[in-house]
């Protein structure tokens, strides 16, 4: 059946529909990057101008030109690189140890509801202690070297991972587990094939939080006592009122955290290929 009525002249031509929402010229990857860089440039320009005009004290705030000169000097001398490596190493090692042990322990609690209920209040209690407060004892126990910083990073990351993994294992779809049991699967098979994979997204989500905590542990450890690392550098520089060096340390930490965040992103995409299909599109409001 034809839908065109005979005799009725086609007066109107089909007009291409206008897109309901016009996309901004800058709404592309390159455009956004340009805007972001522009924002950063304006921020530093205002800062520098403020210092030159005398509104901002270079002594208390530092200045972008000073920061630039200092970082140039610290890069050339190799200090910045070696301090960064040191801190990065502590943070990553602490992160890996803490996250792996925390996650494994949290997952293992799935095996026994009895044990889980038994230890739950202790986990909550330990978690409610601000871990930074442990720093002085950790230094007492593990000395002023590498181990104490890693231990601090572990103490910060392990419980986050443990609680997230335990919660995710508890929330794992019961129907998937029932299906496996009806197929004759034993408890280990249910654990490895149904529970563990379904907790992976939550566990990887804690990576993002924990990589930050790893850095916190390393830097705080270095604040308290150390001879190396970015935390040590910042602490030393601020006690000498060398604000430019403090900023160099902070910006370096920022860059480290930033890079690590995207490394986690890559890890997530590699480990969870099945998650990608849905997260790519969002509802337009």
């Amino acid at each position: 059946m034809s839908l065109v009525m005979s005799g009725a002249p086609a007066r109107k031509k089909a007009v291409p529909r206008k897109s309901r929402k016009k996309r901004s010229t800058f709404d592309t990857t390159l455009g956004r990057a340009m805007l972001q860089l522009l924002g950063v440039a304006i921020f530093f320009a205002l800062w520098e101008a403020g210092v030159h005009a005398g509104y901002i004290s270079a002594f208390l705030m530092g200045s972008p030109s000073g920061i630039f000169a200092t970082s140039y000097k610290l890069i050339l001398s190799g200090e910045l690189l070696s301090d960064s490596w040191y801190t990065l190493f502590e943070a990553i090692l602490g992160f890996i140890i803490g996250t792996i042990f925390g996650s494994l322990f949290g997952l293992a609690l799935w095996y026994s509801v009895f044990v889980a209920k038994l230890v739950e209040p202790f986990i909550v209690a330990i978690n409610s202690v601000p871990k930074i407060a442990l720093a002085p004892i950790v230094v007492l126990w593990f000395g002023t070297g590498l181990i104490s910083k890693i231990a601090l990073a572990v103490s910060l990351t392990a419980l986050v991972a443990l609680i997230a993994a335990y919660q995710a294992a508890k929330d794992a779809d019961v129907d998937l587990q029932s299906l496996m049991i009806s197929m004759g699967a034993d408890k280990h098979q249910v654990f490895w094939k149904a529970v563990v994979p379904s907790t992976l997204p939550s566990i990887i989500a804690t990576f993002r939080i924990n990589i930050g905590f790893g850095l916190v542990g390393a830097v705080v450890g270095e604040f308290i006592s150390s001879q190396r690392g970015l935390g040590h550098m910042i602490f030393l520089a601020s006690s000498l009122y060398d604000l430019n060096s403090v900023w160099v340390g902070l910006f370096t930490l920022m860059i480290l955290g930033f890079v690590l965040y995207y490394v986690i992103d890559i890890i997530e995409r590699t480990l969870l290929p099945w998650k990608q299909a849905t997260t790519s599109h969002q509802v337009q409001v």
Binding site: D173, D175, L179, S182, G184, K193, W274
Partner: peptide
């Protein structure tokens, strides 16, 4: 009949990661 039945439910219960 555990292990000898084929149980199918209203939800397809496919494992999303597989």
């Amino acid at each position: 009949l555990r292990g000898r039945v084929g149980y199918m439910m209203q939800k397809d219960l496919l494992f999303p990661w597989r």
